[in-house]
Computed example of a mutant assay.
Amino acid sequence: MGVNGHSIGMWNCFRGIHKRKGKKTALDLTAPASDAILKNRKNTWIQLAGHPGGFAPAGPNTIWKKRYTKDNNETQAYETLMEDTARDIVPMFYREVEYNTEYFIEIEDLLQHFTDPSIMDVKMGTRTFLESEVSNTTLRKDLYDKMVALDSTAPTAEEQQRQSITKLRYMQFRERESSTAEFGFRIEALRMSGETPSSNLKRVKSKEQIHGILSKFINNRRIVQQSLVHRLKEVRQHIEDSAFFMTHELIGCSILVMHDKFEKCGVWIIDFSKTNLIEDGCEITHRLPWHLGNHEDGFLFGLDNLMQFFSDIEIKEELTNTMKPSQTIPDS
């Protein structure tokens, strides 16, 4: 990826780059998660967020992800991305398979590159719902009741009087309950090395709360901090240079961040089930505010902020003094 010409390998940082020449390789598997495969896996696969039971180990280095929608948006997205300049910032895609009347996509198991990693799932964008989901202006009491259950002070006087709200009003309320609306990302789940996953993070929204979680995640290691910031810069450059990303709205996509005790680091974009091609003639920046019809999603706005949050983490000097000079990544 080499956005600034540095050779990341010399700093022991895993970049997630694979030389993907020729056609995609399809693995000849008839069922996921055989006992022999599971016993020999380097890592036990961990699902941080999303539908329970939506993933299963497949081959030694792949997983199956269940398709919940009738369309095959995610399959089409991955197939296009494998031919795009941004293919190195997403898991490698192998195929779509039908198994027991259900459909799955088979993709690279990113954990194969790490030993007991710390993992973070970050939902990106200022909008995590499709425009088609909120175009209906029907007033709904059930959504009003959900809002009140989460925050009794949220409804306006008019909403209290009529005891109903639109779906758009509810969805935007939910976005403001987390850091999504203000910063363009929210931390969905976190798993520190050797610990159980935590997914009760969706209402984390303040700068102080975010800094606290990210500081915990990098565990006061400057080399991890600098490597992740460098990788996030590369991901951003790939998005800005990508024909795919600049012609699609990115709704519900996540950034998956990992590092382990050997200071291998990786950042990838995952989850493309709500990714849609925008209409001809409609330009998208992924940074401008959204209004109905412009398809802006705030993905790059969120990525800019996430990168800044990581950059702003203060490392305790008593630990960094023990690091070797070769472990420090030069400023880009």
Results as ranks from 00 to 15, higher is better:
27 L>E: 13
256 L>A: 01
46 I>E: 15
115 T>Q: 07
33 A>R: 01
289 P>N: 08
129 F>R: 00
157 A>K: 15
11 W>A: 10
233 K>F: 09
235 V>E: 04
233 K>E: 14
180 T>N: 10
83 E>C: 07
143 L>W: 12
174 R>I: 05
55 F>V: 15
188 E>A: 15
133 E>I: 04
239 I>C: 04
55 F>A: 13
249 E>I: 08
186 R>A: 06
214 L>S: 05
90 V>P: 03
105 I>M: 00
313 I>V: 07
105 I>T: 09
305 N>V: 03
126 T>K: 14
275 T>F: 11
273 S>Y: 14
97 V>A: 00
11 W>G: 08
312 D>F: 07
242 S>V: 08
62 T>F: 03
136 N>G: 07
194 G>D: 04
82 M>F: 03
80 T>P: 01
85 T>P: 08
205 K>Y: 05
25 T>I: 12
77 A>P: 06
142 D>C: 13
301 F>D: 00
2 G>N: 10
89 I>K: 05
66 K>D: 02
62 T>N: 03
250 L>M: 13
319 L>K: 05
16 G>K: 00
173 F>G: 06
155 P>W: 01
135 S>M: 13
141 K>W: 01
125 G>Q: 04
154 A>N: 04
331 D>H: 03
205 K>E: 01
67 R>C: 13
297 D>N: 01
56 A>D: 03
179 S>C: 06
66 K>P: 02
73 N>G: 09
1 M>Y: 12
64 W>R: 00
18 H>W: 11
150 L>D: 06
147 M>A: 10
300 L>V: 09
97 V>C: 00
105 I>E: 01
160 Q>P: 03
279 E>K: 15
236 R>L: 02
55 F>W: 10
297 D>T: 02
163 Q>E: 15
105 I>W: 00
311 S>H: 02
322 T>E: 09
18 H>T: 13
287 R>G: 09
32 P>Q: 02
138 T>D: 10
279 E>H: 14
303 L>E: 00
254 S>Y: 03
183 F>H: 14
254 S>P: 01
39 K>L: 14
313 I>M: 02
89 I>N: 06
280 D>A: 13
311 S>Q: 09
14 F>E: 08
321 N>Y: 11
